[in-house]
Design a binder for these strands. Sequence first.
DNA 1: TTATATTTTTAGATTAATCTAAAAATAATT
DNA 2: AATTATTTTTAGATTAATCTAAAAATATAA
Lengths: 218, 218
Amino acid sequence: MITSFTEENYLKSIYHLSPDEGTAVNTNAIAESLNTKAASVTDMLKKLADKEFINYIKYQGVTLTPLGRERALNIIRKHRLWEVFLVEKLNFKWDEVHDLAEELEHIHSDLLINRLDEFLEFPKTDPHGDPIPDKHGKFNVPELIPISKLKNETSGIISGVREHSPLFLKYLEKTGLVLGQEIKIKEQIEFDGSFIISIKENDIMISREVAKNLLIAI
Amino acid sequence: MITSFTEENYLKSIYHLSPDEGTAVNTNAIAESLNTKAASVTDMLKKLADKEFINYIKYQGVTLTPLGRERALNIIRKHRLWEVFLVEKLNFKWDEVHDLAEELEHIHSDLLINRLDEFLEFPKTDPHGDPIPDKHGKFNVPELIPISKLKNETSGIISGVREHSPLFLKYLEKTGLVLGQEIKIKEQIEFDGSFIISIKENDIMISREVAKNLLIAI
DNA sequence: TTATATTTTTAGATTAATCTAAAAATAATT
DNA sequence: AATTATTTTTAGATTAATCTAAAAATATAA
């Protein structure tokens, strides 16, 4: 079954909006995430339901069928592998690759993407630390915890982000808060919830907002 | 000015159908090359003329404007660089890359393609020997001659093909008639116009059809 | 040069994806 | 439970790209 770019973007959006497999996703949430209108979403949901990519009951939101989930993961796999390619081979920065990968993810060829996977030596995560599904759609969800939830004196490795905006990523880069960097939580300031952490022998302060979006492996 | 995939395919088609810059391309020729109908072509020609990519006079065919030519060459550059990537880095065969490159050529990023060019070390030709325009649209047209036009006892290097169908390319591959291979014309058979050529100390026969489509640098 | 054939364009429909505005269903609140 | 607010769907249009069938223009041939 052929899928259009648009359909693929809807499937991806529904996948990303599902906290877990069972719970339904709202029309409005999809509309917002795709910068479109609820009426347009309703139309597309009917179409995706016809094609058996989603379970759709009027007024009740949607869940992905196994087929839809497979398709969504395939697109996410492509997106993340292209991101690795752009960063590792073409020297793009981690804050520059998202929009390009949004285009490249729609290239329709499993053979191509499997060859790319091999060329990149089967990376497990993309440049933002997000896991890359293998060709069967399997991946491990690494146990990452935001800095905001860690206790003082905890050490760990920066291993992911919860926010992917170029502005945030550029800030992290500039501050040295890059993937693989070891850090240690020193203190939380009660007044505004900001944190003092040590990185490479220095103490720096990060806002609560940053702490919530920086993920650590312990 | 943003161009849709469809508009880009029309521009590319018009470029490929222009034997030289001045002569106009027919509506029907475009329709045939894009597997569409003349009426659809007329509609699109009006649109491309509005956008100043082509010079269009009703019933007189079209030529590319400098802007249209630039755009066409940019797409061709992308197509050919992606082909090099697929063959050199992802181990695709020269007969497998065309359809994939047809998709990849529409990725909209000059930065990406210039980085890819650099990564591939600025190749001058694609896997079929066709020249790759540089970022300014400049390229040398190599002087290649079909075997069918060569005299007996001429030696040369296989450097291009005039026909890109997978069937033809697979045949060449199997027969050892690959880019870079030196050959020598031994004899033309009057009866059917086929040729006997020597390749790696062996004499082989190729049909007139093959001889017309295999290009040699002397 | 008139008649015939071919090519190209117009007119009017169709399909995918979108929109606005209004109606219907569901959820929240008094 | 009745009213209000929110969410979702329907109805009807719009845009890009396509199509078929018919008309118009150009090219070819008698």
